[in-house]
Design a binder for these strands. Structure first.
Lengths: 239, 239
DNA sequence: CAGTGGTCTAGACCACAGT
DNA sequence: CTGTGGTCTAGACCACTGA
């Protein structure tokens, strides 16, 4: 029987299931996850497959494995989880994050600073630009500008990106999944547009992240710059 | 025959070998690594073992895997690689990094701010404190303070930590290896001791990282805070 | 088409934690 | 001692790339 949209590999499904269990408190910090052998029996998968799923949880900082003991759930992350690859929202106080579009998607030429990083294929297409402001408890926390090549993105310019995950949109509507990337971080002083949007005084220390994402679509990269105030919330990530 | 100190698992040896090859230019950016099947033949290991080794290279941002094509070596990282777990020095311009001890190791009581994070066993021991300044091209770039529980660390207080990797010392002399951890990042304004050590003007935006490390020694954690100026060098890491 | 990496199975032996 | 995670073998089928 054709199973249609069962695209997610089994170890990934396990990962999602366990992550959900952790988020919902089924497994509390300090608790042990079921052992690998037990998970193996429960889900009808072999241990290497189970281990692949648990490995993702380790990478994302959800659990720690201790030989002879088990997989221990780590204490809840308190900061903003944009250091790791997953979408931003993964580890935030639930429902408290608002996302407001500042500049709706438009076509632009590529900025000169990025041109040397771009692949030849991406350079032949124009660039989709959009920017959004993210608020926690109605307080602006960070502002993000995204640039992506306008290649096979039908209807993207008319998408509504308020309170919507960009990663989710790319995955669901265009089959683009992020597979890797790199980031650079600097501390700068707030000024101009950034200072206004984040509602801080001129010169306030601000975190700036420049990220480049690799995707499952060959030679398709995209780029995000983030400006983040860290007086109330800090950035947190696994090592 | 007893093989003595062959503690390193085979996938880890493969990882070290390939990483060395990348650093030394045997594999240049854009090049393909030998395929998994070829590595399997070359090293006499099965493919899952090879894949485990390559997986580490992916996590550290050295390579990218493309299905149907191979493992592509990524372009060299340019910034300071202290975002990932590996020692700091891994991706710096070779030989340009100097490390100067500011405060040699001394015993101290634990700072109050850390007490709630500490395990009960760690609290029963005093805390070893040390701090170091790191310079690139004779320019101070970041300052780091380290706190670790004084448990089974014979002779640590008299170690010379100038131009020496702390991670290497812990591993070689005490068998302590870092297995994971978490970090928090904020942007702050430079002042006081930090401002003097980093030789910047008062209020200059500075990056502050607070890291906590987990180790292979049960319940043994340690902590590092880093203050980093990012005007000349930025921090870089894989996603 | 042959070769690549992605996923998965079904076992094995080991070092280590807790009892 | 039993059960845990850590490492490893020896295969299998798949989706995808490039010629």
């Amino acid at each position: 029987m054709p199973n249609g949209f069962n695209q997610l590999p089994q170890y990934r499904q396990l990962y999602e299931t366990l992550k959900k269990g952790i988020h919902e408190g089924l497994y509390a910090p300090g608790d042990l996850l079921p052992s690998e052998n037990e998970l193996s029996r429960t889900y009808g998968l072999t241990r290497p497959t189970i281990r692949q799923g648990l490995g993702e949880l380790v990478n994302e900082g959800y659990i720690r494995k201790i030989r002879g003991k088990g997989s221990v759930v780590k204490r809840r992350k308190a900061g903003i989880g944009i250091l790791n690859i997953k979408g931003t929202t993964d580890s935030l106080p639930t429902g408290k994050l608002r996302t407001l579009v500042v500049d709706a998607p438009v076509l632009k030429p590529w900025p000169a600073a990025l041109k040397e990083e771009l692949s030849a294929t991406d350079l032949t297409h124009k660039c989709v630009y959009l920017s959004r402001l993210r608020l926690i408890e109605l307080q602006p926390i960070f502002y993000e500008e995204t640039l992506l090549p306008n290649r096979d993105l039908p209807g993207f310019l008319t998408q509504n990106l308020n309170d919507r995950s960009l990663f989710g949109l790319l995955a669901e509507d265009y089959g683009i999944r992020v597979t890797g990337g790199a980031q650079r971080i600097r501390a700068i002083g707030a000024k101009g547009k950034i200072q206004e949007l984040l509602q801080v005084t001129n010169g306030t220390p601000i975190l700036r992240l420049d990220k480049s994402y690799e995707t499952n679509r060959p030679y398709y990269h995209f780029y995000t710059s983030i400006w983040c105030r860290t007086d109330a919330y800090y950035l947190e990530g696994a090592l």
